[in-house]
Amino acid sequence: MEANKIQEMLQSQFGAAIQEVTQEGWVKLDRGHLLEIAQFVKKQNDLSMDMLHCITGVDLGGGTLECIYIFTSTTHKHWLTVKVDVKVEDPKLPTLSHIWPTANWHEREAFDLLGFMFTDHPNLKRILCHEDWVGYPLRKDYEFPKEFEGIKRDLVLEEDDVMPRTVKKG
């Protein structure tokens, strides 16, 4: 099914819950409807999004985090991208790990690197970073640690036009 057909279908089914659709084929939702819509796209025979390809996110700045879900169907071979905005102060999202078991690890990664809080997740703890890591590395306001477990780094961060790089002091 074409991306715009999928968008139309979701809009006719859920109406105002779909906040925005874009030309590239993305659908932006309200987080309150995420669970309901996720179950719908999986069960609905014309969509049957049986594979959750990945969960990712981005810090949009201005205190907004965006969680991005990419679904695909092994029978219809089509794709769907769903985005949900949350505020940094309240980055709660419902877990999808009971619908797609693969979401378990992908949500842990999104929590680890961006700090989304997935409610009712069976095992929400850091997966890639060390368990006692401080902060969420992929947030735009993340500060590079000057020290980790007693190991000091005497480095400063300088920005130039090409790319910011770490330069040794002195």
Partner: peptide, 14 residues
């Protein structure tokens, strides 16, 4: 997992 993590995604942003 995570023993080989170097946050490629953060490196790529720079």
């Amino acid at each position: 997992i995570g023993y080989l993590h170097r946050c490629f995604e953060k490196i790529a942003e720079n």
